[in-house]
Simulated assay, not measured.
Amino acid sequence: MRPLGLLATVLSGALLISACGGTTRENSTGNGGPTGSATTANPQAPLRTGLKITYLPKQVNNPYFTVVRGGAENAGKELQAEVKTTGPSDASAASQVTYINTAAQQRQDALVLAANDPNAVAPALKTARAQGMKVVTLDSDVAADARDVFVNQVNSTDIAVKQIELLAEAIGGEGEFAILSATANATNQNTWIEIMKQELVKPRYTKLKLVETAYGNDDDQTSFQKTQALLAAHPNLKGIISPTTVGIAAAARYLSSSAYQGKVALTGLGTPNQLRAFVKNGTVKSFALWEPAKLGYLATQAAAALASGRVTGSQGQKFAAGSLGEYTIGQSGEIVLGPPTVFTTDNVDRFDF
Rank of each mutant, 00 (worst) to 15 (best):
G32C: 02
A38W: 13
R147H: 10
A124V: 13
V67M: 12
L138K: 07
T29Q: 04
V151E: 13
S140T: 12
A81H: 09
K58H: 03
T40D: 14
Q80E: 09
S95R: 03
R129A: 09
N61E: 00
I53Q: 02
F150E: 10
R107S: 14
N62Y: 00
L111R: 07
A122P: 01
A91K: 03
N119C: 05
A72C: 06
N152H: 06
R107D: 14
A114D: 07
E73I: 04
A120Q: 09
D90N: 07
E78K: 07
A122H: 08
I171S: 03
Q96K: 10
A45T: 11
N61M: 02
E169A: 13
N61T: 04
A160S: 07
V121F: 07
P63K: 05
Q131Y: 10
A128H: 12
K77H: 07
E73M: 04
T40L: 11
A72Y: 00
G76R: 00
A128L: 10
K52C: 08
K134G: 09
V97I: 15
T40S: 14
I164S: 05
A114M: 10
T137K: 01
S28W: 12
G132N: 10
G172R: 00
P34H: 04
R129Y: 08
P34T: 04
A128D: 11
S37Y: 06
F65K: 02
E78Q: 14
D148F: 08
A115D: 01
D90F: 02
T157R: 13
I100A: 04
F65C: 05
N42R: 15
A160Q: 03
R48A: 10
Q44H: 12
A38H: 10
T157P: 01
N152I: 05
A81M: 10
K162P: 01
V136C: 12
K58D: 01
V60K: 08
T98W: 01
Q106E: 15
T85R: 05
S156N: 15
N152D: 11
L56Q: 12
D90P: 02
Q153C: 09
A128V: 13
S156E: 12
T35E: 12
G36V: 07
A128S: 14
R69E: 05
K52F: 11
